[in-house]
Structures are given as C-alpha cells and as structure tokens.
Amino acid sequence: MPPKLSKYTIGQIVRHRIFPFRGVIFDVDPEFANTEEWYEAIPAEVRPRKDQPFYHLLAENAQTTYVAYVSEQNLLPDDENGPIRHPMVTEMFDGIVAGRYQLKPARAN
C-alpha cells in the first residue's frame, strides 16, 4: 500500500492535539522514520500508528523551543497563526505570508 499523502505542508503552523506546544513544519516523512527506541518510549496508550505521515517541527511551548517529531494524527492547524519564536525559523524561512512560513529558496528542493 502506498504511503498516505500528508495533510500538512512545509511552512504550515500547527499545534499538538494533546500536549501544549505549537510549531512550524520544516520536513515531512511519508511514514514513521525514527528509531524503534524513540517509538517504544511513547506510552502505549498514546503511541501513534507508524503508517501515517510524521512531521519535523521547530516547536515551542511556554518554557522553551526545540525540534519535535509528531504524527499526523496528533496535529491540528494552529489558530494563532502568529510567529514561532524558535531561533532556527529565520535560518529556514523568509517570513509568514497568509498564515504560512515561506521556505527560503536555498532550502527548497
């Protein structure tokens, strides 16, 4: 079976369905592509399926910024659409247009 098409796109601002953080997508894996150790560390009752897109985010919560790896089932569009304060945002993106970060031309494939 071919991988599912991703619901979200690079540059889109999203938030986590369960945990209080939001971020901007900077890469997408068509299905799970992290380590088994990482996957098994997720509590079984909230562990996502592997057969769905997973997103790399420049993420932020109230305390800090970090990089997150999140399954599609755990993401929602972000209603704030305001800037993400992660320090790497300016390295990857030019700014926000119509609620979406614009990837710098040098970063586009």
Rank of each mutant, 00 (worst) to 15 (best):
residue 2 P to F: 15
residue 2 P to A: 14
residue 2 P to Y: 13
residue 3 P to Q: 12
residue 3 P to L: 13
residue 4 K to N: 10
residue 5 L to M: 13
residue 5 L to A: 14
residue 5 L to R: 15
residue 6 S to I: 00
residue 8 Y to L: 14
residue 8 Y to A: 12
residue 9 T to V: 07
residue 9 T to I: 09
residue 11 G to W: 12
residue 13 I to A: 02
residue 16 H to G: 04
residue 16 H to I: 04
residue 20 P to G: 04
residue 22 R to E: 10
residue 24 V to R: 00
residue 25 I to D: 05
residue 25 I to T: 01
residue 25 I to E: 05
residue 25 I to H: 00
residue 26 F to E: 06
residue 26 F to W: 09
residue 26 F to S: 02
residue 28 V to C: 01
residue 29 D to H: 06
residue 31 E to P: 03
residue 31 E to F: 12
residue 32 F to C: 04
residue 33 A to S: 14
residue 33 A to K: 11
residue 35 T to Y: 14
residue 37 E to F: 10
residue 39 Y to H: 12
residue 39 Y to C: 08
residue 40 E to F: 07
residue 40 E to I: 08
residue 40 E to P: 02
residue 41 A to Y: 01
residue 42 I to Y: 10
residue 42 I to V: 14
residue 44 A to D: 15
residue 45 E to G: 08
residue 45 E to K: 07
residue 47 R to T: 13
residue 49 R to Q: 12
residue 50 K to G: 10
residue 51 D to V: 03
residue 52 Q to C: 09
residue 52 Q to K: 07
residue 54 F to S: 01
residue 55 Y to F: 12
residue 56 H to E: 04
residue 57 L to T: 04
residue 57 L to W: 03
residue 59 A to W: 04
residue 59 A to K: 04
residue 59 A to H: 07
residue 60 E to I: 05
residue 61 N to V: 03
residue 61 N to K: 01
residue 61 N to Q: 06
residue 62 A to C: 13
residue 62 A to M: 15
residue 63 Q to A: 09
residue 63 Q to W: 12
residue 66 Y to M: 08
residue 66 Y to K: 02
residue 67 V to W: 02
residue 68 A to T: 06
residue 68 A to R: 05
residue 68 A to H: 04
residue 69 Y to F: 06
residue 69 Y to I: 02
residue 70 V to F: 00
residue 71 S to F: 00
residue 74 N to F: 13
residue 74 N to T: 06
residue 75 L to I: 03
residue 76 L to D: 06
residue 77 P to G: 11
residue 77 P to C: 11
residue 78 D to P: 03
residue 78 D to E: 14
residue 79 D to P: 14
residue 79 D to H: 10
residue 80 E to I: 13
residue 80 E to G: 13
residue 80 E to R: 15
residue 82 G to L: 13
residue 82 G to Y: 06
residue 83 P to R: 01
residue 84 I to E: 02
residue 87 P to D: 07
residue 88 M to F: 09
residue 89 V to T: 11
residue 90 T to H: 12
residue 91 E to S: 15
residue 92 M to S: 04
residue 94 D to L: 15
residue 95 G to E: 06
residue 95 G to Y: 05
residue 95 G to Q: 03
residue 97 V to Y: 08
residue 99 G to V: 03
residue 102 Q to Y: 02
residue 104 K to F: 09
residue 105 P to L: 08
residue 106 A to M: 10
residue 107 R to S: 08
